[in-house]
Design a protein around this nucleic acid. Sequence first.
RNA 1: GGAGAGGUGGCAGAGUGGUCGAUCGCGCCGCACUCGAAAUGCGGAGUACGGGCAACCGUACCGGGGGUUCGAAUCCCUCCCUCUCCGCCA
Length: 428
Amino acid sequence: MYDIKWIRENPEAFDKGLERRGLPAQSAAILALDEQRRAILIKLQDAQSLRNTASKDIGKAKAAKDEATAAKLMADVAAAKDIIAKGEEQERQIDADIEKVLSVIPNTPRDDVPDGRDETGNTEVRKVGTPPKLGFAPKQHFEIGEKLGLLDFERAAKVSGSRFAFLKGGLARMERALATFMIDQHTARGYEEILPPYLVNRAAMMGTGQLPKFEDDAFKTAGAQELFLIPTAEVPVTNMAREQILAAEELPRRYVAHTPCFRSEAGAYGRDTRGMIRQHQFDKVELVILSKPADSYANLELLTSHAEAVLRALELPYRVMALCAGDVGFASAKTYDLEVWLPSQLKYREISSCSNCEAFQARRMQARWRNPDTGKPEPLHTLNGSGVAVGRALVAVLENYQNADGSVGVPSVLQPYMGGATRISPLA
RNA sequence: GGAGAGGUGGCAGAGUGGUCGAUCGCGCCGCACUCGAAAUGCGGAGUACGGGCAACCGUACCGGGGGUUCGAAUCCCUCCCUCUCCGCCA
């Protein structure tokens, strides 16, 4: 969400940001609404002011038993009331109009974000590790899992539908081991472990920017109480700061949360239909940082390096991509994606996305800090990143650690979490 | 699910129709005293929006929304939330 004052003062920068995202300029239309709003406000407040002073004088006149003056003043107030009622209605309307326009405008990409319309404009920042030489034709992760008898999409289709899976035995355990390992690694670096609600209200979804624009992507409860299944732990965890004013000493706050994530994948028909790459439900370990604005880009580098550390520890080859202006998410000003190597696809695939949303989400949820330089509450900066997607990490381990005989090696850092097992074999 | 009690500024807690954006206390900031600190004294301090070059002025906000009234933190309706007891339950 934009600060309308900022648009007023920086209309060119605002339109430039929209243009970089491939959207038409909107500052003129928004500022016209803003002017209308102020004209309405001035009228309304004048009338309210008149009513307030007259009402006080009525009190005084009555106390002085001056009924004639009181009666005259009451007539004045009656006249002002009509203006007030109309003005309040107009203000409500114009506020709603402005909110409607602003709430669907994405964040401005930061200057150092590369130009580009879509993912083809993303640029590689660095590449770490080398793809394994397997010496045989690599299988896809779902072939490996099904052959082991530990991954079952057909049963899941009967129970839940497409894009769900049952994990069994060693695979289920490895998923759990991955998540626990990741959490342990992040808490050791000072992140506070959070177990948040998996259902959130509309305001929370608005706060982080999933709503109002992307309602189709979310699962929603059908009962009397409207709740959304979280598409990422970013939503509940970032919203912990909603309507708070944090002291400067409390920043940065670093949180790690392991949760299931639920996505309708409404626009993904036909993409990644087989396997676990794109599911309606998947687990993710999420990192969230609440930062002072001045530190937020240093924190983005740090956050990204912490997500990378997971892949390094698992010895999975990956690369870091800087998303271009046309590809950064709605709420983000700058995003790095981590992409992990999948031998069966001979491709790097997204496994983490690390974003600095600057004040965009903070303004939506009124998350502030008290700036000691000004003494005033100001929006803080919010960052989030996957550290990392657990389901996709499992996919990457299956493919990169597969053996010719169909078994799968266990990365050494995971072995302590799996009772010392060094490989996954079929269920006995 | 049933019964009751509440939601007021960073915290705690007054305020039941007018001069209340709101007493007092704690905490916070500044100043004085002190070598320094503590204690004490004096002073300051909410948030948002609008107007103004500024000093400053105005408007709104006492859980949300609506109503009564010339005037609402205070009265009425409604919704939400919290707490206590009972029931049920992992």
